[in-house]
Simulated scan of single mutants.
Amino acid sequence: LAALAVLAACATETPTSTELVPPPEGRGFQLDEGDFNLPAGEEGLYCMRLPVPASYGDRPLFVRQIESRLPAGTHHFFMAYNTEPVDEQVGCFPSGPYVSTAEADQHDGGGGKLMFLSGEGEYSYTLPEGYAFYLPTGAGHLVTSHHVLNTGDDEREMYGRFNVHTAPAEEIAHPINQLNCLLQDIWIAPHSESTVSGTCMAPFDLDLVVLASHAHQHLRRFEMLLEGELIYESKDWDSPDIVTLAEPRRMRAGDGLEFRCTFRNDGDQWIVFGTGDYGEMCAIMSQYAYPPERVNEVPPSLGTIIYRDGLAAELVETTDLDGPF
């Protein structure tokens, strides 16, 4: 890992300020999902639909950088993009923006395709020059999926602030899209430590640009290996590393990207795939581009689900499929 060239991937566990200086006019916009209070001992999902500013019209957006400010009590945070228009900020659920864990899928509260993930604290990631995340139209909206958990004895004040930095199309030669792999076969016996793994196979030549991961509170270590070489490691389940590669890593068609999650179960029940006190996940949540010679070509979103520990599955195009992947 010491040999990895990291362009920009930083996080601090405790935010020093909720304030963000907005991007320059015409180069981005700021989003605020609002403030809310989380009672002691409660777990839930706060989800808002936030429109893209009308000044962007219906032309494509190219996102080069995202900054976030999220407080302690953030279990994890996903930002997704939805092509449907909304006129104003609105909660994702009939009852409003917040529901308890039992009432919603904690990983797909408002629909759309994932574009950014974050943990608590101050996060920022910036793509290499000429690269940007592609959004097909500014007429859509962004969805905040803020999974929160208060393990303390006092009520917590919660919030979410974000800067979305954009670039004009003429500055972007290499649009990027998401690449996600999810392992659903997780069984960790009580009072034990164990590693589960899966491998996702490239359907065509591609370049990995951003490496990131997702798991829950029992995680001890998340690893990615490309052709046997360790290219990513994170040991923080609630503030996973987001690694932007200064030099994208090539995957040839048929190459496998292996991922491993090591979990520790100190409880009296089995840990299984899912949410809650004994629920876990193990997923690659990364981004990729076509090789440099395919200038200005927009790649499809790619994803796959691996149903058995240790097996491999080919990534498939998910652009027109429902779900966050």
Rank of each mutant, 00 (worst) to 15 (best):
P203L: 06
T166E: 00
P175S: 05
H191Y: 07
C181F: 13
E155R: 11
A246Y: 05
D236Y: 11
D236Q: 14
E229I: 09
I176T: 15
H165S: 12
A189D: 10
A202R: 01
M158Q: 09
L225M: 10
L206C: 14
C181A: 15
G198M: 09
G198R: 01
M158I: 07
H218M: 05
D205V: 01
D205F: 00
S239Q: 14
Q184M: 14
V209G: 03
W187D: 14
A173L: 13
Y159D: 08
G254I: 07
M158S: 04
I188Y: 00
R161N: 06
H165D: 06
D207N: 13
L206S: 13
A246D: 14
A173G: 11
I231A: 06
L230G: 04
P248K: 00
N177C: 00
Q184D: 04
R250E: 11
E171T: 11
E227D: 15
G160Q: 08
E171N: 09
D236L: 13
G254A: 09
D236R: 12
R156Y: 12
D236P: 02
N163S: 03
S234A: 07
Q184W: 02
F162D: 02
H191W: 06
Q217M: 10
H218R: 12
D207Q: 11
N180D: 10
E233Q: 11
E193M: 10
G160S: 14
S239V: 12
R220Q: 14
G160Y: 03
R221T: 10
M201Q: 14
E155I: 10
E233G: 00
T166Q: 05
N163A: 03
N163E: 04
A173K: 10
L219D: 00
C181L: 09
Q217V: 10
A202F: 02
A246F: 03
T199W: 00
Q217T: 09
W187V: 15
R252I: 03
D185R: 09
S239P: 05
V243T: 13
Q178A: 14
E227G: 14
M201A: 13
H191M: 08
G254T: 10
I242V: 15
S213H: 12
I186G: 04
H216C: 01
W187T: 11
Y232N: 07
N177L: 02
L183P: 03
P203Y: 07
S239T: 15
D185P: 08
A173D: 12
S213Y: 15
I172D: 04
F162R: 01
S213M: 10
S213E: 11
P248W: 01
S239R: 15
E223V: 12
L230W: 06
D236N: 13
A212N: 15
T244E: 02
A167Q: 13
E157S: 12
I188F: 02
N177M: 02
H216K: 04
